[in-house]
Design a protein around this nucleic acid. Structure first.
Length: 267
DNA sequence: AACCATTTCAACCGCTCAGTT
DNA sequence: TAACTGAGCGGTTGAAATGGT
């Protein structure tokens, strides 16, 4: 599109940040808050690209970042979220407070991939490696058209699936109950990932009137219907009451689509 | 102690999306 | 409606750190 570069490359520093640069950035954001990254470097007296400032702040300087090792629980959460979402690192990071998408992406590539391989699991498809060659083809091939973002062979820049979880997908994390699990009970359907209890609530855009026939919506969604589709993982994961999931009240149940992880089918 | 191989992770790049004009 | 702009995302890179011989 011939867009202008995000910064004047000739006059920007690159590479590792110095302590002084960090201090400048921290001081500026403390004083003025985040926002307008493009103009921030100049205002803060930094010879850096706005994108670089944002990245530095988000991935390293933010005070709420949790640094240190991932726990085994974190690992499992990441693995299961990746099975559900594919390489949507920012969404996965949203479920791990204090962790950044970049950190999770790196951790996935350096640790979890190997961990899964050692278990004989394909890190992309989350299916057994041996004899699981069909994994890429079975079900998952149709999943992208069915709306689930296929975690299998992920192209560098996959075309957005018809209904796939879009960028504006929201994960609602209900206030945790005392036991830390607000929504495990009451399930009548056995979840696909029974030990995954993240109270995920995916919703796409403002809920509107449901499709005339849910079945038709599942099989032949119009683009409008796609935009109005609500994907409720709370439901899928066993949440039925409105306590932890407000989407049922916001949208007609008929408007729900339920995702079946891995198989990429609506339940 | 020195060298080489491997691993880790901060940072960059290119792209898309959403908002604005 | 189209063009433009800023923000954010995911893939990739390369320097630094670590481990092995």
């Amino acid at each position: 599109m011939g867009r202008s570069p995000c910064c004047e490359k000739a006059h920007t520093n690159k590479g590792a940040w110095t302590k002084e640069e960090d201090q400048r950035l921290i001081a500026y954001i403390k004083a003025h808050g985040e926002g307008c990254w493009r103009s921030l470097p100049k205002a803060a007296g930094l010879l850096r690209c706005g994108k670089s400032c944002r990245l530095r702040w988000m991935n390293y300087l933010r005070p709420d970042l949790k640094r240190g090792n991932f726990t085994d629980d974190d690992d499992e959460i990441i693995i299961k979220l990746h099975a559900l979402l594919g390489n949507k690192w920012s969404l996965i990071a949203g479920q791990l407070p204090g962790r950044t998408d970049n950190e999770i992406k790196n951790y996935w590539n350096t640790h979890i991939k190997r961990k899964l391989l050692s278990r004989g699991i394909d890190p992309q498809t989350h299916r057994p490696l041996s004899g699981g060659s069909a994994a890429a083809g079975s079900g998952l091939t149709t999943s992208s058209t069915a709306g689930f973002p296929s975690p299998s062979p992920v192209p560098t820049r996959p075309a957005r699936p018809a209904i796939a979880i879009p960028p504006n997908v929201m994960f609602a994390r209900p206030a945790p109950s005392e036991d830390g699990h607000s929504s495990s009970g009451g399930s009548t359907d056995a979840p696909r990932c029974p030990d995954l209890n993240l109270d995920l609530d995916l919703s796409v855009g403002p809920p509107c009137s449901p499709p005339k026939t849910p079945a038709a919506a599942v099989t032949t969604p119009t683009s409008q219907q796609q935009q109005r589709t609500t994907i409720c993982l709370c439901y899928h994961l066993g949440v039925r009451s409105g306590d932890a999931c407000s989407c049922k009240t916001a949208a007609s149940p008929a408007g729900f689509r339920f995702l079946r992880p891995l198989e990429g089918q609506y339940i």
